[in-house]
């Protein structure tokens, strides 16, 4: 029973990831693509959670937290590049 429910949710998440990938490829502006990549990372987290339920293991739980942190840092770095034109500043001018 649980396997069927988890498989259906995996298919649903995979379909939503296909929609997100369409937005990454098609997206008219760069911020669209950045937001799409961020939500792709979050969908990947839910895929890993569902797979760890399916495989009845808890060794993937570190990967979930890791992907959350990496998605956040990547999105912040992209946004800073779009906002200021450079990612790491030598000295803050204010």
């Amino acid at each position: 029973m649980l396997n069927i429910v988890v498989s259906i949710s995996l298919i649903a998440v995979a379909l939503s990831m296909i929609g997100i990938v369409y937005r990454v490829i098609k997206g008219p502006t760069t911020p669209d693509r950045v937001i799409a990549l961020d939500s792709l990372g979050i969908s990947l987290i839910s895929v890993i959670g569902l797979i760890s339920v399916l495989m009845r293991t808890s060794v993937f739980l570190e990967v979930i937290l890791l992907l959350g942190i990496l998605a956040f840092i990547g999105t912040v770095a992209f946004s800073k590049y779009l906002e200021k034109g450079e990612i790491i500043q030598r000295e803050r001018d204010q």
Partner: peptide, 28 residues
Amino acid sequence: YTPGGGFIGGLMTAAALVLLLLAYDIKT
């Protein structure tokens, strides 16, 4: 005893420092 170790721990600490670099700057 569980997944992890020196390599990924070091990478995560460096990620925290990179987040500080993003929010502030190299001099700070």
